[in-house]
Design a protein around this nucleic acid. Structure first.
Length: 563
RNA sequence: GCGCCUGUAGCUCAGCUGGAUAGAGCAUCGGCCUUCUAAGCCGGCGGUCGCAGGUUCGAGUCCUGCCAGGCGCGCCA
């Protein structure tokens, strides 16, 4: 790739200068008069080399082998930037590379095949998934894909609590609704779950077992109700996620930690560190020793472990299962647990900063300027399924991914329901579909467009060159989005690439400017433009696929949808 | 009170490891339709980057203080 060639050449020159290359930033200057690509290495090296940035820049410029870097010219500008103008042959290089790589264009090997676990969603099975889980599901899946595309081997994991207090509350709620169905006047427990879904569970339970549990308040009966409710709600969550296109490699049950003695083992291991102490009848871990705000209780006065303990035990299994890198995607409301979990793991000898966290802020769904707050079924906020059944899976996934995770997400239903280019998802999908329509119109199978077949030097209009440069950035963008665990970087790019593609496409509208039409009479030019159209198609397809979104070959019009 | 996140155009948001004149979409204003699908296109208007200091050749970006909003601070999970 052109960027790589320049970067490589820069590294060679920097080594000659005795300034071993760190990461070299190549970026596209905002001002096109500054060339196609620009780097600030000279500025960043000024201090280290104790020389003026301009002087360093001049030397780099003189020593560079322009032909090797596929660069037409390099100039020193401003305080010491190096501005590159790409050789026209680089256009051909980019397009040929894209056509050759096709569905794997954009992949790289940063991760070198190392294993990484991404844990996400991890909702308790006490009710339907809501929109916040949706954001997490979309984010976690996209982050997983980004890591896969950059050479990591990803394990998607879902952890759920199938044993604790909240499950008891669920059981109590179901039991109350079940007895109500049998005519009893039993109220929902104070801390019970309000949603309609509890009645559904109770009603199915009634159909299954009749009135067997009406008077039976035994431990066995309650265990059976609990298991029934968990099973049913787990199944519902699975369906919700599966229909949302999100799948996991493993579901990890909290109860298995106890069953396999891992919680006791954690107590044992922590105790051996000497950081454990007794205070007011409880057992504490000195997590403050590792930067936590205060020490935490491990085992309560009543002998029961707090949630902290299985949490540490669980994350320790991740390390023991061979995952030296772990990314946890969680709601920001859980950020208080980050320091204490890491402290617990550090006490066990795991590295500082393990695991990594992506904390996402809340989702607010807005319509007509009003917040949509209620779902009868969930008894609280809108459920994930309610959302994507309204706006479609593609739109929902994209909206969840298009903002950086640490910012609040305003999910605007009015925009989501808009089927024009105002909706960023459709803007990108349209651009892809438009490329497909060119091939349909031409009666050509787009797969028949091959690398090296066209004279790409014929592409010389600004709109075309601009588009090619944009396409060339794709691999770097994927790397950066993966590095920062930030799918929104890719969304941003896709919108820009789609914008450039749409501009090019519309400029070539035969009624407007026949000379820019792809399907022009001149065979050579036409082939070159078809190669560009195919490249656009590949980049948009790969980008959308990475985000778990369809890249349709044809958009369905609303008036066609009716029938 | 303490901790974390956020504050950039009327609205929703980008802004990479500190780099050149702070960008996009929407809204608004002006122009353009029998199209390789106008569900669109082209152009204009619009910002003391929350405030005040500091570091630096250079700060939206880093540091300190303050202001506003969100979240978290349990022998809950």
């Amino acid at each position: 790739m052109e960027n790589d060639l320049i970067r490589k050449e820069l590294e060679v020159v920097l080594n000659e200068l005795g300034a071993p290359a760190g990461a070299i930033t190549l970026e596209r200057p905002r001002d096109p008069s500054h060339g196609d690509l620009s780097t600030n290495v000279a500025l960043t090296l000024a201090k280290r080399l104790a020389r003026s940035p301009r002087e360093i820049a001049e030397e780099i410029a003189n020593k560079m082998d322009l032909a090797a870097a596929q660069v037409e010219s390099v100039e020193v500008a401003g305080p010491g930037f190096l501005n590159f103008r790409l050789a026209s042959s680089s256009v051909a290089l980019v397009i040929d590379e894209i056509l050759k790589d096709d569905e794997s264009w954009g992949r790289s090997d940063v991760g070198k095949g190392q294993a990484v676990m991404v844990e996400f969603v991890s909702a308790n099975p006490t009710g339907p998934l809501h929109v916040g889980h949706g954001r997490q599901a979309a984010l976690g899946d996209a982050i997983s894909c980004l890591l896969e595309w950059t050479g990591w081997v990803v394990h998607r994991e879902y952890y759920y609590n199938d044993a604790g207090r909240q499950i008891d509350q669920l059981m109590g709620s179901v039991r109350a609704r079940y007895r109500q169905l049998l005519g009893e006047r039993e109220p929902l427990p104070d801390d019970g779950y309000q949603g309609e879904y509890v009645k559904d569970v109770a009603s199915v339970l009634l159909g299954d077992v009749g009135d067997r549990y009406l008077k039976d308040d035994s431990r066995e009966a309650n265990d059976e109700i609990r298991a029934f409710a968990v099973k049913m709600l787990r199944d519902e969550q699975d369906r919700d996620l599966s229909d949302f296109g999100v799948h996991f490699d493993q579901y990890f049950l909290e109860s298995s930690l106890y069953a396999e003695g891992l919680v006791d083992a954690a107590i044992q291991a922590l105790t051996e560190t000497g950081l454990v102490f007794e205070h007011e009848g409880a057992t504490w871990l000195k997590t403050s020793h590792f930067g936590d705000q205060k020490d935490r209780v491990m085992v309560r006065g009543n002998g029961q472990p707090t949630y902290f303990l299985p949490d540490v035990a669980y994350h320790a299994t991740k390390w023991e299962r061979g995952f030296e890198r772990v990314v946890n995607v969680q709601g920001a409301d859980h950020h208080g647990t980050v320091d204490r979990v890491r402290a617990g793991l550090q006490a066990l000898g795991l590295p500082e900063g393990y695991p990594e966290y992506v904390l996402h802020q809340m989702v607010r769904v807005m319509q007509d300027g009003q917040e949509v707050k209620f779902s009868k079924r969930a008894g609280s906020g809108m459920t994930l399924r309610e959302l994507y059944e309204r706006v479609g899976v593609d739109v929902a996934r994209y909206f969840f991914q298009m903002r950086k995770s640490e910012a609040h997400l305003l999910f605007d239903l009015d925009v989501a329901l808009d089927h024009s280019d105002k909706n960023p998802v459709f803007k990108v999908q349209y651009a892809h579909a438009r490329m497909c329509s060119i091939f349909r119109k031409a009666g050509i199978d787009h797969k028949s467009v091959r690398s090296g077949a066209a004279n790409l030097g014929l592409l010389e209009h600004d709109l075309e060159l601009d588009l090619v440069k944009r396409l060339a950035e794709f691999t770097d963008v994927v790397k950066r989005a993966a590095r920062d665990l930030s799918p929104h970087i890719l969304c941003d790019y896709l919108e820009q690439a789609a914008g450039a593609a749409n501009s090019w496409y519309h400029a070539g509208n035969p009624s407007r400017n026949p000379k820019l039409t792809v399907l022009i009479d001149d065979d050579g030019l036409r082939d070159a433009r078809l190669a560009l159209a195919r490249s656009v198609q590949i980049v948009l397809h790969n980008g959308l696929t990475l985000l778990g979104i369809n890249a349709p070959e044809k958009m369905i019009r609303a008036d066609e949808e009716e029938s």
